[in-house]
């Protein structure tokens, strides 16, 4: 599903390597955490996967395609297969829950009928069926992140990528969101999560890839946050 080979990323000449010789393979249907201290390169790695940036060296393969060399006009189709979830939610705050989810479908060319059928369904999956008409600013942080999740799965992506999805949430709410991600994973969607949340990582016992100063220093199945070296 995602494969990195000697992956290096440098943001500019004279800058330090944000990623250095990273190698890993994540299979279809896996649930994997990327952990590491601030500046370790977690977000950089996720950005490479969706080709927000291009690798300086090495190869990053997603769905068996070398995304670093993907022609620009193919990018939208790569991204339709990847649902993104962000720490700051990135929702259209003046619009309703329903609109936010429908938006992702409309701008990628879904028909009205599909949108009408799919949106209530995904809102139901994240437990927001009663909040469809609510404005984003009237929701709690946890509810907003649920909207983010609903939007991410609206186009039935093969993979979800979440960058610190619980960074702005209290521990209880964070656990709810993570459990939602796990249930999405159980339906067959690959899930990659970059996080600082030690508690959740330790509790989930999923695969953990540990980054330090741009290097991959640990990669364990059923790992825990601190169990490296």
């Amino acid at each position: 599903m995602v494969e990195a080979k000697n992956l290096c990323m440098k943001y500019g000449k004279g800058k330090q390597l944000a990623l250095e010789n990273v190698n890993f393979f994540i299979d279809r249907g896996e649930f994997a955490f990327f952990v590491g201290s601030s500046g370790a390169g977690k977000s950089t790695l996720l950005k490479l996967i969706i080709r927000e940036i291009k690798p300086t060296e090495g190869v990053i393969k997603v769905f068996n395609r070398d995304v670093g060399r993907l022609p620009r006009h193919r990018l939208p189709y790569l991204r339709r297969n990847i649902g993104m979830v962000f720490q700051d939610f990135r929702l259209m705050e003046e619009r309703s829950v329903y609109d936010n989810v429908a938006f992702a479908m409309i701008v990628t060319g879904s028909s009205r009928r599909e949108v009408k059928r799919r949106v209530p369904h995904v809102l139901n999956l994240v437990g927001l069926q009663d909040k469809a008409k609510a404005k984003i600013t009237d929701l709690s942080g946890g509810e907003q992140q649920r909207v983010g999740l609903a939007r991410a799965i609206a186009n039935r992506p093969a993979m979800i990528i979440a960058d610190e999805p619980t960074g702005n949430l209290d521990p209880g709410t964070a656990l709810d969101i993570m459990n939602l991600l796990r249930s999405i994973n159980l339906r067959g969607t690959t899930v990659l999560v970059a996080t600082h949340n030690r508690d959740i990582v330790d509790r989930f016992r999923k695969r953990v890839l540990y980054l330090e100063n741009g290097k991959l220093v640990g990669d364990e199945q059923k790992g825990i946050y601190t169990n490296v070296h």
């Binding site: 006009h73 991204r79 993104m84 990135r90 938006f103 990628t108």
Partner: peptide
């Protein structure tokens, strides 16, 4: 700005944007 950023992430084409 926000809408456009979201459009890029969810996979809208250049033309749609």
């Amino acid at each position: 700005k926000r809408e456009i950023t979201i459009m890029k992430y969810v996979g809208a084409t250049n033309w749609f944007i």
